[in-house]
């Protein structure tokens, strides 16, 4: 287990909750999708280098991680933007969004 704290700022919490409520119907499906998102957070924290950084600009120090959410018949793509603070042992998940692109 890595020592990184998983930090979700207020806005990111809202983005995740809105996404779950708007894109998944039914409590069981929403709970399952929440499990997937939380598991992906654990995957990032276990290896923060998984996300890609975009060179030549302000996203050089941030990373973007794309993942699949497969729940029931639904297959969606989503992304986290995050930054790693090694001194404070924190990963801050500063962005979350659905990716509207073909799987």
């Amino acid at each position: 287990m890595t020592p990184y704290e998983r930090v979700l700022p207020h806005d990111t919490q809202n983005l995740i909750e809105e996404f779950l409520l708007e894109r998944f119907i039914g409590t069981a499906t929403q709970l399952a999708a929440a499990d997937v998102i939380e598991a992906e957070i654990e995957r990032i924290v276990a290896n923060p280098m998984l996300g890609a950084s975009v060179p030549d600009g302000p996203f050089e120090k941030r990373r973007i991680y794309r993942f699949k959410i497969a729940v029931g018949d639904q297959r969606l793509l989503a992304e986290f933007a995050y930054s790693i603070n090694k001194e404070r042992a924190v990963v801050v998940f500063s962005g979350f969004q659905e990716v509207r692109a073909p799987l």
């Binding site: 979700l8 207020h10 929440a34 957070i41 302000p58 933007a81 801050v92 998940f93 500063s94 969004q97």
Partner: peptide
């Protein structure tokens, strides 16, 4: 990138200001 830099910077500011939850608490 797909993300709005202003929104990302705002969320990071929230984290610095203590306006956050850990993932476990949130979920």
């Amino acid at each position: 990138v797909g993300f709005d830099l202003e929104a990302i910077a705002r969320a990071e500011r929230q984290a610095e200001a203590g306006d956050f939850r850990t993932a476990r608490d949130f979920f």
